[in-house]
Nucleic acid binder design. Structure first.
Lengths: 342, 342
DNA sequence: ATGAAAGCGCTAACAA
DNA sequence: TTGTTAGCGCTTTCAT
C-alpha cells in the first residue's frame, strides 16, 4: 500500500477542511475557486475552517487536474545582458497580471540547450514559451517538435508560422549609419555579432544600404564579427580596429554593451570620442546615458517587446487555432555625445 | 462523469505506452526512472514504444505523486542589477546540476510582494526558496510563516535560525575606506542605500570605524542615504554632494551601479576623477573595469555566493532536521584608476 | 446549493 | 523480474 511520498509534517488537505467545516470537498473547492453558487453562510463556514487549519491549496494537485502548469518558459541567450534583462521584465509583468509565472532559462544561444529546455514544454512543465534565440535555432525547434505553443521575440523569421514581435532591424541600422554619414564620416566600421542571428544579417544590410546609398562602397574588412556581446569583446574589437593601416573614423556596434566596450577600447588606443572616432550603439540600455561620452544609440522599446511577446503567447494559449500575426514595433535614434563631431 | 480538463489534442500517457509494449504501467515507470531491476529486453521493448508513440512524461502528474515541484524560488530585490544577475546565475548553475529549475521573482525589496511570493512555497509550487531581500523583510517572513525551507543570501541576520551565506560587510567597507584614507583623503563621503538593509548598516559601521580609527570624526552629513541602486540615483547624489559648501574629496558608494552613476555626476559637476574626487564602489561588476576612469571597488564573489546559497538550500531540503551553518566568503579590494591620486 | 464519485497520469508497496 | 492496485489532492460532472 502506498504511503506518503514526502516525509514533510502532515499537510492539511482539502478533505481535512471539508471534514472540519462539515461540508463536502466539492463545496470547499467551490469556495476556494470563488464560485458564486455557494451560499454565503457556507462560504463563511468553510473559510473559518481554512483559517483554523492553516490550509493552503496544493497547486501540484490542481495543476494535474486542470492540466496546466501556469508557467511560461522564457528562453534567453544571456540573462546578464541588460537588454535581455529588460525584456524579461516586460514579459514578467504581463505574465503576473494573468497569474502566470516565468521560468527563465539561459540558453547561451546554444541549440542543444535550447532543445533540452524545450522538452519542458512537452513534459507539461510549462504551458508555453517565448524564444529570443537565433532564428537558426528556432528553425531547428520547429523541425524537431512542431505544433508547440511558443512565440518569437526580437529574433524571428517572418516566413515561419510562429507569432513574433520585433523591430525593423535593417531600417534601424540604416538610420544609425546615415546619422554617422551626415556628420561627415565616410569610413564607418561595423562591429557585428555572429551572423547566425537574423538581426545581425539585417543590421549589416542596413549598414550596407546606408553606405551605398551615399555612394560609398564598404570594404569587406570594415565589418568585424565578434562572438559575444559583452563589454570586453567590444573593447578588444575596437583596439584591433584602431591598429589597422586605415582605421575607421566612426564605429557602429550592434549592441550597447559592445559599444560601451568600444569606448573603453578607444580610450586605451589613445583615441578621443567623438573627436577622433564617433561611436553609435544599439538598444539604448540605461547605462548608455551614463557613460563618458554618453552613447548615441538606437532605442528599442525593450519593455514593450517583452510585454507584447507575452500577450501574443497568452493569446495563442487561449485560442490555439487562431492565427496570430507578426508585429513590428518602432525604434528611435537617440543622439548623444559619442557621435557629435560639432 | 469528469472529462478531459484540457482540450489539447490527446496526449500519450504511460498506459498507452504500456499497452503498446505489452507490459504494465509499473514496468514503463521503472524504465522511465532508470531502475535497474528491469530486464534489458523489456527495457528495449518499452523504449521502442516510447519512441513509436512520441511519449513524453507528464511532470505535472509526477510532481503530484512525488510531492515535489523541483522548482527553487529565488527572491531578488532587482533582477536588473548586474550584481544580483550574477548571483542568480550561480544559483541557476547549481540548481540545474541537481535537476531543479529556478523560479525568479523580482520583489523590489517590498515586504508585501515578498510575502505573496512566499505563498508559492506553501502552495507547493516551489520546494524551497533563496531570499536576497532586506533582513527586515526576512524577519517578517519568519514571523508570518515559520518552518519553511529557505536560506538567506548576502543579506541575513546571524541571530536568526535561517542558513545564510554572505560576506563580512563591515570589514569590506572598512578596507575600502582605509584605502581612501591612505591616499591622503580626510573627508570621505558615504553614499549608502536605505538602512532597512543590514548590509547598509554594516557598511556604514565599517566606514565609521575606518575614519575614527584614523582620528577623523565623520560629520552626519557626510553620509547620504539613497532609495535605489540605479545609475541615475548615484549620478544625482554625487551632484548634490558637490554643491555643498564643503564637498568631499572622496566618495565611497555601497554599490558599483551607484558609483558608476557618481562618475557621471562628477563629470557633470566639472570634477575630475580621481584628481578632484576619488571614488570607490562595491561589488566589482563586469562594468567596473570598463568605465572611465576604471572603478576601484570591493569584489564580492557573486557567482560563489549564489552557488553556495543554492547548495545550502539543497542540503536543507535533503536533511530538514540537520542544522545548516552560516557562511562568510572572502571579499577583496580591487584598486583601479578611480581612487589613485598619484 | 450541495454531495458523491470519477478520474488527471504517475509512483511505489506488495504480491506473485 | 513483472503486474496489480491504491492513492497523491484536486476539479468537475451529474444527481439531488
Amino acid at each position: 500500500m502506498p504511503q506518503r511520498a514526502s516525509d514533510t509534517p502532515q499537510t492539511v488537505s482539502i478533505s481535512a477542511v471539508a471534514a472540519h467545516a462539515g461540508v463536502s470537498v466539492a463545496t470547499v473547492s467551490r469556495v476556494l475557486n470563488g464560485q458564486s453558487v455557494v451560499k454565503p453562510a457556507t462560504r463563511d463556514k468553510v473559510m473559518a475552517s481554512v483559517n483554523a487549519l492553516g490550509y493552503r491549496i496544493n497547486e501540484l494537485a490542481r495543476n494535474l487536474r486542470t492540466a496546466e502548469s501556469r508557467l511560461l518558459l522564457t528562453l534567453v541567450p544571456d540573462v546578464g545582458n541588460p537588454f535581455y534583462a529588460e525584456i524579461v521584465r516586460g514579459i514578467d509583468a504581463v505574465a503576473r497580471e494573468h497569474n502566470y509565472f516565468v521560468l527563465l532559462c539561459d540558453t547561451g544561444a546554444d541549440s542543444g540547450r535550447e532543445q533540452s529546455y524545450f522538452e519542458l514544454l512537452q513534459r507539461r512543465r510549462a504551458d508555453g514559451a517565448i524564444c529570443l534565440d537565433p532564428d537558426t535555432v528556432q528553425h531547428a525547434l520547429i523541425e524537431a517538435s512542431p505544433g508547440l505553443p511558443w512565440v518569437a521575440c526580437c529574433e524571428f523569421d517572418p516566413g515561419v508560422a510562429v507569432p513574433y514581435v520585433g523591430i525593423d532591424n535593417r531600417r534601424a541600422a540604416y538610420d544609425a549609419v546615415t546619422h554617422l554619414l551626415m556628420q561627415g564620416h565616410r569610413h564607418v566600421a561595423l562591429i557585428n555579432s555572429d551572423e547566425t542571428w537574423l538581426y545581425a544579417r539585417q543590421r549589416k544590410q542596413g549598414w550596407i544600404d546606408a553606405l551605398t546609398g551615399r555612394g560609398i562602397t564598404p570594404e569587406p574588412d570594415w565589418c568585424v564579427n565578434v562572438a559575444g556581446l559583452d563589454y570586453d569583446t567590444g573593447n578588444r574589437a575596437a583596439q584591433a580596429l584602431m591598429q589597422r593601416a586605415k582605421p575607421p573614423t566612426a564605429i557602429f556596434a550592434v549592441s550597447d554593451t559592445l559599444a560601451i566596450g568600444v569606448l573603453a577600447g578607444l580610450r586605451t588606443a589613445g583615441k578621443r570620442v567623438p573627436h577622433d572616432v564617433a561611436v553609435v550603439g544599439f538598444d539604448n540600455i540605461a547605462l548608455a546615458a551614463q557613460v563618458e561620452p554618453a552613447l548615441t544609440t538606437i532605442a528599442q522599446p525593450m519593455r514593450e517587446l517583452g510585454m507584447t511577446a507575452a500577450r501574443l503567447l497568452l493569446q495563442r494559449l487561449a485560442q490555439p487555432e487562431q492565427n496570430v500575426p507578426g508585429l513590428l514595433l518602432a525604434h528611435q535614434l537617440v543622439v548623444r555625445q559619442s557621435s557629435q563631431t560639432t
